[in-house]
């Protein structure tokens, strides 16, 4: 039997698939969050140098990792949409942007909360923090451009081009910020060389997996809304049970 690889690249079929997947990812994410937070707060020992403050890394590190990966994945989807002219890819890209921006913001916020007791300052012009801030700006630019263009096709393509230009620029920005920082004030505080305790690692990886699943669940849920919004004039949407019911009530 030949498998049709592109079956789910059409919004019509993907809408149903996403609907089936969302609860699974959401439940798995919630469970992993519970386990990760339990290990992080109850099992993992206190850090020798940082005391209890270090525990914020269980959300800070996954959020930072996710914010960077989501931008690349978003740019990848955007490029797919631009090259092959597929509708769903562009919808996925715009569904991912708010989640990515949220993670970038969480990463900055938790970083500031950690920095105040550890470094004695809410904000330091450290290379990583600065590039995270710029990443947040790039996300905001993507969202702003997409939402200020009324025609969805043009919005998709313009934002896709911006995302690609941004992803080419990300390494340039990262290294320039890194060199700028080292030129100005020498190396700043780094993580101590000690290897992490096994429970800390477990907590961190569990939280990372939980964040991934959360991102997938939210993206799928959001892409379903986008599909409905874009395809609202089509027949298949009006025949959906949830849509037909809603109209019946009115």
């Amino acid at each position: 039997m030949a498998i049709n690889w592109f079956k789910y690249s059409a919004p019509t079929t993907f809408y149903g698939l996403a609907g089936k997947l969302v609860p699974w990812f959401a439940v798995a994410s919630a469970a992993l969050f519970a386990v990760g937070l339990y290990i992080g707060f109850a099992v993992a020992p206190m850090d020798a140098t940082q005391g209890e403050f270090y525990r914020i890394i269980f959300i800070h590190v996954p959020a930072s990792i996710l914010s960077m990966f989501l931008y690349l994945i978003m740019a990848g989807y955007a490029a797919l949409g631009l090259i092959f002219n597929t509708r769903l890819s562009a919808m996925m890209a715009s569904a991912m942007a708010p989640t990515g921006a949220l993670f970038a913001f969480i990463s900055l916020w938790t970083g500031a909360l950690w920095g105040k007791p550890m470094w004695g300052a809410w904000w330091v012009w450290d290379a990583r923090m600065t590039s995270e801030l710029i990443l947040l700006f790039l996300y905001l630019g993507f969202i702003a451009l997409h939402s200020s263009i009324d025609d969805p096709r043009r919005a998709d393509r313009a934002a896709a081009l911006l995302a690609i230009v941004g992803s080419v620029n990300v390494p340039i920005i990262y290294f320039s910020v890194k060199w700028w920082n080292t030129l100005h004030q020498g190396s700043t505080i780094k993580f101590s060389g000690t290897s992490m305790h096994i429970a800390m690692q477990q907590a961190m990886f569990t939280m990372l997996a939980a964040c991934w699943l959360y991102a997938i669940a939210v993206t799928l849920a959001r892409v379903r809304s986008i599909i409905l919004e874009r395809e609202k004039q089509t027949k298949w949407v009006s025949e959906l049970p949830e849509v037909a019911q809603g109209e019946g009530k009115q």
Binding site: G141, A144, I173
Partner: peptide, 23 residues
């Protein structure tokens, strides 16, 4: 080119371009 003919194009333009100019 991306913000051509958009409302609030000027401010949007700065939002898009300024981060890219940081290096």
């Amino acid at each position: 080119a991306l913000t051509l003919g958009l409302r609030g194009g000027g401010v949007l333009l700065s939002l898009l371009v300024l981060p890219l100019c940081i290096p």
